[in-house]
Amino acid sequence: MLINPMSGGVDGNAETQARAILDEYEVEADVYLLEGDGFQQTIDEAIAAKPNALLVLAGDGTARSVATLAGDHDILVAPLPGGTMNMLPKALYGTGDWKKALRRTLEQGEPRPVAGGAIGDEHFYCAAIMGAPALWAPAREAIRSGKIGKAWSQARLAFRRAFSGRIRFSLDKRQEQKAEALVLVTPLISKAFNENDPGLEAAAMKTSDAGQALRLAANALFTDWRNDDAVETTRTREVKVWGRSRIPAVIDGETIPVGREATIRFEPHAFTALALPADTVDDVS
């Protein structure tokens, strides 16, 4: 088990609490802290040891990175909720409480193939937002944290930029299209397709007037803008995106650099999680 004591959802007692839970279930496990200069080396050594399973309690970016490495080396991985958004852990364990997620993993966990997507060397397992709505992510997080003043300033900045330029994209080498943004959702969390569907859910946001833009901005802050009437949804395996300037991009809740163009590809089996069965996650909280 790897623990980053400095991540947003982990406190100083995490190592002691984790060891106690593992002992309670009589699991033979080594627990290591991810710290300082040895951060990446500890991860590399854990992968090289080829454990039966690799439990990760860390931020969203670290969990995503370790899941990718585990997939490359055919190691079961349990990315527990130790970050701020915890999109992947919540999809796999139905909770943002890492201690609950760990117990559920030890009691009910089974191998579960997880599909995903990749933008160059960056992998995502829940969703990628390309274009304007990626600018709303900081405002939404500020609202969740109760920081209304910060949320307002972030929202003003986002709205000034959000509808100033469109991105161009092509799905599976088909005809070029334009949109304010494109969201690519993996089968793990897609509500339009099931987990076995061979592709990403592509939701294109297209507006025709300022009224639609304002409505979509409100939805981006408070609900799921993919449910808006101005959004078109389809399935795809490869996407090319380009724009006149650098494209705002967020994957699994984290901002990443993309540049003016990018190719996104579907990964039918990105890694194997030690997680709850897919049909039971919605039944827990």
Rank of each mutant, 00 (worst) to 15 (best):
M1N: 05
N4A: 04
N4I: 03
N4F: 02
G12E: 14
E15Y: 08
A18P: 01
Y25F: 14
V31K: 00
E35T: 15
E35P: 05
Q41M: 12
A48N: 11
A49D: 10
V56D: 12
L57R: 08
A58Y: 07
G59N: 07
G61M: 14
G71S: 02
H73Q: 12
P81V: 09
N86C: 08
L88V: 13
A101M: 02
L102E: 06
L106M: 02
E107R: 04
P113N: 00
P113C: 00
P113L: 00
A115R: 02
L135M: 09
W136S: 11
P138N: 10
W152F: 14
A155F: 06
A158P: 00
R166M: 08
R166K: 11
F169P: 07
F169A: 05
Q175M: 13
Q175A: 15
A179L: 11
E180L: 10
V185R: 09
V185L: 10
I189P: 07
A192T: 15
A192C: 13
D197Y: 14
P198A: 12
P198R: 13
M205V: 15
K206P: 01
T207N: 03
A217M: 05
A217Y: 02
A218I: 11
A230M: 12
R244V: 14
I247H: 07
I247K: 09
P257M: 10
R260A: 10
E261H: 13
T280Q: 11
D282E: 12
S285F: 08
S285W: 05
